Amino acid sequence: MQKELAAYKSERDKVVRNRTSDPPAFQMALPVNDRGYMPYVTADQQKLMDRITDSYLGRPEHEMAKMWEELRANGLTPEQLVRTADYFINLDGEIVSRAVATGGQRSTQHGSTAWTASSV
């Protein structure tokens, strides 16, 4: 899982560096539970998230609500990722199962928020 995501991020970085303009950064907050884990975003989820957010580049700011609707429809909002993630990651990069990350609870308790940035 980690190798697939790292390979995608490496390719994605090349695409972003080769852009002729500097688009604004898109930020998404991923909730961190009381055990210090946030949902692990898979390579497939990240690819879809980037495809959606890239499609809104250069659009007027008022269209960002549509972007969030599309992310929501694809299960990619922070709340949806928390509910559906099979794996979680902590700030040290340790990936664990949902049971370990949540102490066996199906839904996580939100302790704080970790911010991730993705250039779009």
Rank of each mutant, 00 (worst) to 15 (best):
T116W: 14
I95T: 05
R51G: 08
E70K: 15
K66L: 09
Y37D: 00
N18Q: 13
P24K: 14
A7K: 10
A73L: 09
W68D: 11
V96F: 03
R35A: 14
Y8S: 07
P60L: 08
V16F: 02
M49E: 11
Q45K: 05
E69F: 05
A25W: 15
E4R: 12
M67E: 13
T116S: 07
R59W: 09
V15E: 11
I89R: 01
P24Y: 15
R12S: 06
P31M: 07
P60M: 06
D34F: 06
R51K: 15
V100Y: 00
G111L: 02
R35N: 15
S21W: 13
G103Q: 10
I89K: 01
T53W: 08
G104K: 00
T20K: 15
H62K: 06
Q46M: 15
S112T: 15
E94S: 06
I95P: 01
E69I: 03
S119R: 13
V32S: 02
S118M: 14
E94V: 07
K3V: 13
I52G: 03
K47Y: 12
Q2R: 14
T77W: 08
S55Y: 07
R83A: 08
V16P: 01
N90V: 04
Y8F: 15
M67R: 08
L81W: 02
V82R: 04
A43H: 01
Y37H: 02
A85Y: 00
E63D: 13
I95A: 01
E69T: 11
Q105N: 14
R83E: 08
M67I: 03
E4K: 12
A7V: 13
V41G: 01
R59N: 07
S10F: 06
M67A: 08
T113N: 11
W68K: 11
D34M: 12
E69S: 13
P78M: 03
A85T: 00
A101M: 09
I89L: 02
